[in-house]
Amino acid sequence: MLQKTRPFAALAAAAALIAAVAGGARAEGLSFAPALRDVATVVPASTTALRLPGAVTLRPAVTPVYRRWMSPEIRTAWNAGFRGQNTRIVVVDDFTSSDRFSGNFGAGETNRRHGYWVRQQAGMIAPAAEFRTLDYYSNERVTARSTGLTVVNLSYGIFGRPGMPIIESELPPQERSIIRHARLGTAVVVQAAGNDGVAVGTMEPGGDVDYLSLALIGKQSAIFVGALDRNGTVTNKARIESYSNRAGGRRAVQDRFLMVGVRDDVTGLAGTSFAAPIVSGYAAVLGSKFRGASATQISNRLLNTARTDTIRNYRRDVHGRGEASIGRAIAPSRID
């Protein structure tokens, strides 16, 4: 039986909180710990219904504010008039559990559930996108916009013992709808790569595998996102965070693996959970420029314009396509 897990930053954020309580020192070592697994139980549907009666649409802040953890490229996009409009970002995450994490994306330190951090981060990148939040225990299906781009952010995994067949129909209804979007190219599906320091889709140290990742491998509009230690530049190259899962040897993963900087030294929030929302925001930005483009085209553009010259010792089996670059994704390949 597959079980949904806590998200890909649970221990990371908890460690930061513990460290802060213990005297303000941030426990970077702990922040690399893998997500908790095999402890989650499915919240009864009735309880879920009471606590989260339906998809919640939050009104995003429209005025973007640049923060130190962001890539400077996004500021350039904003200056050009970007607001991420005409797109929808669906954040499937934990919005109901008692787990709360402390961090600060620049608007002040707060203590909140994982899902709200993820949603805030994506909203800071694409402030004019329409946001929908779905609790990952709600089993509500993800729906795509009839017009305009839909992006689904998954900063969590579904872990189980290896060896089970990957059958879409065996997945919970919510994930089934997500995988279907990735398979048909009706939404960009962005999944955090995971925090076990292993290749995507392989067994983590505890002996489990992420079946959500496995189900997304080879899907036409899926993207896996790993974490770098900074936003790289040619002169100040970024390194992969030791906790971040890697692309690994499978070509199908390498081809759809991106990386972005996760500045936990600035935000107090570590983990690939906070890499995926950046790429989700980028996808929304791109979708607001190329309004007629399909989710597959948007995801491919982000992948094909990723930079490898900003990563130290770039290797395709580690870093996949490279560091996502919104500046390059929105620019033409050739012009005359």
Binding site: A77, A80, G81, F82, V285, S288, K289, F290, R291, A293, Q297, N300, R301, N304, T305, G327, I330, A331, P332, S333, R334, I335, D336
Partner: peptide, 25 residues
């Protein structure tokens, strides 16, 4: 105008000065 080639999105007429902005071509 310029002819901008946006890879996956195809080639299209675009304002040469604004080709790399967030505005749709």
């Amino acid at each position: 105008s310029c002819m901008g080639d946006y890879g996956e999105f195809g080639a299209m007429a675009v304002n040469c000065r604004l080709a790399a902005t967030i505005l749709p071509p």
